[in-house]
Design a binder for these strands. Structure first.
Length: 113
DNA sequence: GGCGTGACGTCAG
DNA sequence: ACTGACGCCACGC
């Protein structure tokens, strides 16, 4: 069938990864990009979230930066993302900092591989 | 058709 | 340890 591994549109692949993020876990933009096949597509992931977060109902709130911190500007989704994460049981600090050691998604980690 | 941008990441100083 | 600058690729105008 496709016979064309890796040629899948980065966007579609990235969406695939984002949808694969377990409930109550968070992943970084770079991580999603890497899993999508582009270790430097972190910014592209951002573009996807902005474009498909609405019509696709992507769990964009489960995606944070490398520090596990919400980089969204306050009043522009920051509070919303924090609320959604807390709703999933994720402990979010006052600065939007999340403990990746506890809530960071580990693909291939215990239970997945 | 070309330029700038962007919810990041990595290297260097 | 921290700050600054660059890179990277897709998308909008």
């Amino acid at each position: 069938m496709n016979g064309k591994p890796g040629v899948a549109p980065f966007s579609e692949e990235a969406v695939r990864i984002i949808l694969s993020i377990p409930h109550g876990r968070v992943a970084s933009y770079g991580q999603v990009a890497r899993l999508a096949g582009d270790p430097r597509g972190a910014r592209q992931v951002v573009r996807i979230l902005n474009t498909l977060s609405g019509p696709r109902s992507l769990p964009w709130h489960r995606v944070v930066n490398r520090e596990g911190r919400i980089v969204l500007p306050a009043g522009h989704g920051f509070e919303l993302q924090r609320k959604l994460l807390r709703d999933e049981g994720v402990a979010v600090g006052p600065d939007g900092l999340i403990d990746l050691a506890r809530f960071g998604w580990r693909p291939g980690g215990r239970g997945s591989i």
